[in-house]
Design a protein around this nucleic acid. Structure first.
Length: 552
RNA sequence: UGACCCAUGGUGUAACGGUAGCACUACAGAUUUUGGUUCUGUCUGUUAAGGUUCGAAUCCUUAUGGGUCAACCA
């Protein structure tokens, strides 16, 4: 199944490094901040990092970038680990940037001793002002003149909790007139008297991203530190810190993050959707989160195939949600058991079938996998069929039921429509038909041809279940680029709940996580949160591709 | 209006100075007891202008377009 794929630019770099003997083996890492759930964009990064170490025989660490205690939580740590495992990956080591706090403190002291870092008492506003703008150089303040001894003492006092939040920071002394804003004496440490989910109250100073990430990479011997494009300007600082510290030279490489149509990918926006109850939590089946997709019924393999197909490059991209759905369908078509479910029922009465009679029939579980065998079906005089499968005045290309037309009832008989009833409001309430003699599925000697085949459920044997039809979360391709609040572009029809759909009794045996194709309706899976033994709830994972262009 | 990154069909992504290929989408046809699947075919592309070269998507220059950078976030 693994079609030959040409290398992406990172693989080119790795192969060159390996060939040059720069590294004997590679080490990568996936570095989430535990302040939200993982989404499909992270899945791209996970597949890349773990895929690389697998391909080149190296290893990948899971390292939590937990340097900001006020936004982080163990709930997120647990969900992240769970999602990575579900995606099919195992990390070599589970690590935390907070494990290195002592080492990082020593590193910072070393920078002070070298005279390339100092304590600044300025307010954040003052620091921002002195920093200048991208087009105007910044200027250094008097604190940059402090002696090494004084800086060392001050830094130790910061650690000891002698100063209030925001009263002092440790800054690297680099170049206030650099065109790269990150090099204008960036803040390395700030004071936060906050409880950390792992280190508790041991620390009241916390390193900034730039002083934690690269150093953690180095400590772990990460050879290829892969991140997204917005970190390109950070690379100069990443390299500067490693050079000053004279520690293992990890290298950073940047690729373009994933953007997908009809959704948003920023954790901030996703958190808003959750907090403001626009969705049912981080794992709502409409969310682009890994947990949401899992609940929706997307197979992990589909996500991996997707990640592999979209490639890795440096240009901005916007990938069609339809591509992900393609891989979902490709996988599910081969694995999902077929069942019949009527979502919008109308009664079909077979007038020449004896009242009170019924019989059992068989239908294949999966035509793609004949070895999965058949299941039993109950057939009778009265059946539920889809309202959409009958047309009073059919168009020229209509394949289904219409007055006088033939249709095959899937795995049963061919019928001829003889009439229909409507109520006073003009709503269809019943369709009448006659069964064609000798047309039983598998034993058809009738010689009658039916253009279409429809699914059905015996009224007498039908079981009801709730079915939830999900659609794209937003009604515009790129909600983030539109004018105004992105939430005003939420698709009001992203969830349609059918309280009483008719399902075949076989579906009572459905297991959590088991994928089904409801014939002609799409792929479905039990909802892991809402479904119960006495109240089945199915989520629509994806529709079937609809090759029928409805006439206008 | 400083620096940096980027530019190949509708969407992604290859081609590493030598025939612009692949996937998705769209369209057409064949098969089909799912208007699904499968199979076959078709359409659409190197941002622009110069330069180097026998030869440029590829190297150089300029322009244009898009993105990023002024949190004590990551």
């Amino acid at each position: 199944m693994s079609t030959e794929r040409s290398n992406n630019f990172i693989e080119d770099i790795i192969e060159a490094d390996l060939a040059a003997g720069k590294h004997k083996t590679i080490v990568t890492r996936f570095p989430p901040e535990p302040n939200g759930y993982l989404h499909i964009g992270h899945a791209k990064s996970i597949c890349l990092n773990f895929g690389l170490s697998k391909k080149y025989g190296g290893k990948t660490n899971l390292r939590f970038d937990d340097t900001n205690p006020v936004t982080e939580d163990t709930e997120y740590v647990d969900s992240i680990k769970n999602d990575i495992h579900w995606l099919g990956f195992d990390w070599a080591q589970e690590l935390y940037a907070s494990d290195y706090f002592e080492t990082l403190y020593q590193y910072a002291s070393r920078l002070i001793s070298k005279g390339v870092a100092y304590i600044d008492d300025s307010t954040s506003d003052a620091i921002a002002e002195e920093k200048g703008t991208p087009t105007r150089p910044g200027r250094r303040n008097k604190y940059a003149e402090r002696s090494i001894a004084e800086n060392l003492q001050l830094f130790a006092d910061m650690r000891d909790g002698k100063y209030a939040d925001g009263s002092k920071v440790l800054r690297a002394k680099i170049d206030m007139s650099s065109p790269n804003m990150l090099l204008r004496d960036p803040v390395l440490y700030r004071i936060k008297h906050a409880h950390h989910h792992r280190t508790g109250d041991n620390w009241c100073i916390y390193p900034m991203y730039d002083f934690a990430h690269g150093q953690s990479d180095s400590i772990e011997g990460i050879t290829h530190s892969i991140c997204t494009l917005e970190f390109v300007p950070h690379r100069a600082l990443y390299d500067w810190l490693i050079a000053q510290l004279e520690i293992f030279p990890s290298k950073q490489y940047e690729f373009a993050r994933l953007n997908m149509t009809y959704t948003v990918m920023s954790k901030r926006k996703l958190l808003q959707l959750v907090n403001e109850k626009h969705v049912d939590g981080w794992d709502d089946p409409r969310m682009p989160t890994i947990s949401g997709m899992r609940r929706r019924g997307y197979p992990a393999k589909a996500i991996r195939d997707f990640a592999d197909r979209i490639g890795v490059a440096k240009r901005e991209n916007m990938i069609d949600l339809g591509l992900l759905e393609f891989f979902v369908r490709e996988d599910l078509n081969k694995t999902a058991s077929r069942r019949m479910v009527v979502l919008d029922p109308v009664k079909l009465i077979i007038t020449n079938y004896p009242k009170g009679d019924h019989e059992t029939l068989f239908s294949e579980n999966n035509p793609e996998m004949p070895e999965t065998g058949d299941r039993l079906l109950h057939f009778g005089r009265e059946l539920w069929i889809e309202r959409d499968d009958f047309a009073e005045e059919p168009s020229k290309k209509w394949f289904r039921l219409a007055p006088g037309a033939n249709v095959r009832l899937k795995s049963a008989y061919i019928i001829t429509c003889t009439g229909f009833d409507k109520d006073a409001d003009g709503n269809l309430v019943a369709v009448y038909a006659e069964l064609v003699a000798n047309s039983k599925s598998g034993h058809d000697t009738s010689g009658v041809k039916a253009k279409g085949t429809i699914h059905w459920i015996s009224v007498e044997h039908a079981v009801t279940a709730e079915v939830r039809l999900y659609d794209r979360l937003f009604r515009v391709e790129d909600p983030s680029s539109e004018e105004g609040d992105f939430k005003s572009f939420i698709n009001p029809e992203s969830l349609k709940v059918i309280k009483h759909a008719y399902i075949e009794p076989e579906l009572l045996k459905a297991m959590q996580g088991e994928a089904f194709q409801f014939i002609r309706n799409g792929y479905f899976v039990l909802d892991s949160k809402l479904s119960a033994d006495n109240h089945l709830v199915f989520n629509r994972t994806a529709t079937l591709k609809d090759g029928w262009a409805k006439p206008a």
